Computed example of a mutant assay.
Amino acid sequence: MPSLLEGEGVGVHLARRYLLAMLEGDRSRARDLLVGAVKAGDLTVPEIYRAVIRPAHAEVGRMWQMNEVGISQEHYATANAEWIIAQLEPLAERTARNDMTVVATSVGGDAHSLGIRMVADCFEFAGWRAFFLGANTPARDVVEASLISGASLVALSANLCSHARTARAVVHALRQHPETKDIRVIVGGLPFAVAPKLAERIGADGTAPDGLAAVELASRIVPRPPSRGV
């Protein structure tokens, strides 16, 4: 399986340097690379998420599958990416609030939260309120969160093929409840990257590979709230 960080460009070069710092156990160096790129105007925070963090951590996963890194290195990279993201988030440009809310979570049984955390952040940057639940959220709790938050959209992450079946159960639970049946649902993760039509088959309204794409998709499929009177 070839490396996922081949090619040229600012993002690819930065992703390689970031990944090396993470694999060498130097989270401060990894952070400084990304913060420096944002402050220099090379990439925005959402672009860092898309072009650096997402592919770098996909590469860590590939390396683990190929026995090129150990589980401790994979865990270190993931845990400390959360630490770095928390320091990037305040540097992001934001648009005005739009009175829309997204519930964002990984489905039950999926312990990965890094990708959906970046999706939630991108919605916040774009003016949404993100009701972020983290990883491993059962279907009934996604429904409850949608009711509590008054969600306009639910964004689900499913990282394994078995998790796609769980995502279908979440969509079904939302569709069965009279107060959540019309909420739009988008999905992401490896099963949907490999087979994009799978999103439609499980009843979702679309799929997106990253936060920027998710926000763009939501702008097309989620009805805008009525304008407030003066």
Results as ranks from 00 to 15, higher is better:
Gly11Thr: 00
Gly11Asp: 06
His13Asn: 15
Leu14Trp: 00
Leu14Asp: 11
Leu14Glu: 07
Ala15Lys: 01
Ala15Tyr: 01
Arg17Ala: 13
Arg17Pro: 07
Tyr18Ala: 05
Tyr18Cys: 07
Leu19Tyr: 11
Leu20Val: 11
Glu24Val: 03
Gly25Cys: 12
Asp26Val: 10
Arg27Val: 14
Ser28Asp: 14
Ser28Met: 14
Arg29Ala: 14
Ala30Gly: 15
Arg31Gln: 15
Arg31Gly: 13
Asp32Cys: 07
Gly36Asn: 07
Gly36Gln: 06
Val38Met: 04
Leu43Ile: 12
Tyr49Pro: 09
Val52Glu: 09
Ile53Glu: 12
Arg54Ala: 14
Arg54Thr: 15
Ala56Asn: 07
His57Pro: 06
Ala58Gly: 13
Glu59Leu: 07
Val60Ile: 13
Val60Ala: 08
Gly61Cys: 03
Met63Trp: 14
Met63Val: 03
Trp64Tyr: 14
Trp64Ala: 02
Gln65Asn: 08
Met66Lys: 11
Asn67Ile: 03
Asn67His: 14
Glu68Cys: 02
Glu68Met: 05
Gly70Arg: 00
Ile71His: 04
Ser72Val: 14
Gln73Phe: 02
Glu74Asn: 01
Glu74Ile: 03
His75Phe: 01
Ala77Met: 07
Thr78Met: 06
Thr78Pro: 06
Glu82Met: 13
Trp83Phe: 15
Trp83Asn: 04
Trp83Leu: 04
Ile85Arg: 10
Ala86Lys: 09
Ala86His: 05
Gln87Asn: 07
Leu88Met: 06
